[in-house]
Nucleic acid binder design. Structure first.
Lengths: 240, 240
DNA sequence: TTTAGTGGCGAACAGCGTTCGTGTCAAGTA
DNA sequence: TACTTGACACGAACGCTGTTCGCCACTAAA
């Protein structure tokens, strides 16, 4: 923005048309509006028409700033990645820091409902994805991990985080669709699974039938961290 | 089909209407047609209209046998799971068998292009999903793993497999969209990533810039098995 | 022979991503 | 100051989607 926009025009000049103020429409505005809709209405609610409506314009106008819906989703995704906070790297504490990064990343993806659904679909080459990759990769390298292992580790941990967040977003979507609250939905979902398991013939599914309680015991957070720790422990065993 | 259809009708009886022979249309037929289309044209090509066309009928007819598209996808998914071959469980070799199962599952999901995209979306309660869950869960339990750990392990391994297969299906979709062959696509993709990495400013991304070769070294199979082994090793460490 | 009921399915609805062509406005030039 | 230029906004339309309604043909029972 120029610095002159707050200076009133000289009175002897005819007042210009009511100053555009509405003819802005930039990529940033579109991405922001898209994220707002994604948070409020989910991925199913995010259409180009809906974004245009949010900006008081027609859908065709968006295509001057964004190639297509897929690109818009990638832009939104990288914007969300920008919210991820990274501690100063301390290679001596690589296990803790890797764990913290994963949980932080998972938290951010989860806090924006359906963004994870777009995450898996996009190849992460945005500036924020790179910033995060450099952080995690550097952390492992500086901790002494072989570059090849560090490379694979970054890739696999990212896949795991995104996959879990994606699965979570599907539940969130179902929850929204049914209109239930988070608690209600969760109870009803687990209840369905439980009764389904209990109705199974014990002779054909002996192990499942015997351990139904264990199968439905843990919630999403415990599951996520369990799998994460599996991977981190595996990595620690490979550390020279 | 009845056995009488090849016998010509007695001439004194009015010729019946050309025998239905077309008025079959069952859920199985629909699922099969859907899978055929999924394999040939990908998830984007799979529409209710397309399935109906394949069966020489209109889209409305499908809804008598299938609630909606989501249910159709779940049915297709469970049908694909039926192709997974499981060795007789031998708890003493649980690590090898868990690994073999994961690779077999990954292979089957990968051989049906986009089915993994439907996999993550559906809650697996179909008969084949249960058969597999019972197998893996039982294998770990009988190997001596605590039921709570075994439950988490089954869940996490399944998520990892499906997540990776899903990612692979996205690449496959892009490959189809660009019209390139598998080799060409892969080379062009890795080439893009490589040149993108090499163009990064080394002062801001020192680790990435230094190890580009390691970052683009491994293909999908190596990556998948690396992450799988991370998890299996982590599980082995938790085995009492 | 009549009746009841089942299931196939044409047509339509509301919505989607995307494109084309036109309209309009701001800045640059004479 | 008047005119040209070029970029952007966007209404309207195209071809597609999942799904529903209501009519129709047909089978099976009465």
């Amino acid at each position: 923005m120029g610095s002159s926009e707050n200076v009133p025009p000289p009175p002897w000049r005819k007042a210009r048309k009511p100053v555009q103020l509405k003819r802005q429409l930039s990529q940033d505005l579109i991405v922001e509006a898209g994220l707002r809709i994604l948070d409020a209405e989910g991925l199913d609610g995010l259409s180009m028409r809906r974004v245009a409506q949010e900006l008081d314009t027609g859908p065709a106008s968006l295509y001057a700033h964004v190639a297509n819906k897929e690109e818009l989703l990638e832009l939104i995704y990288d914007r969300v990645l920008g919210e991820i906070q990274l501690a100063d790297p301390d290679p001596a504490r690589w296990k803790e820091q890797l764990r913290e990064y994963a949980i932080e990343c998972h938290r951010v993806l989860g806090s924006h409902a359906d963004v994870a659904r777009a995450a898996l679909a996009s190849i992460p080459v945005g500036p924020n994805a790179l910033r995060i990759a450099e952080y995690v990769f550097g952390l492992l390298i500086d901790a002494g991990m072989a570059p090849r292992d560090a490379s694979l580790a970054v890739d696999r941990i990212a896949l795991y985080i995104t996959g879990d967040a994606f699965e979570g977003s599907l539940h969130f979507g179902r929850m929204r669709a049914t209109g239930l609250g988070l608690e209600e939905y969760f109870k009803s979902f687990v209840g369905h699974i439980e009764s389904h398991y209990r109705a199974l013939p014990a002779e054909r599914f002996p192990h499942i039938a015997e351990h139904v309680d264990d199968l439905i015991a843990d919630d999403g957070r415990v599951r996520f961290e369990y799998g994460l720790d599996l991977m981190i422990d595996g990595l620690a065993a490979r550390m020279p």
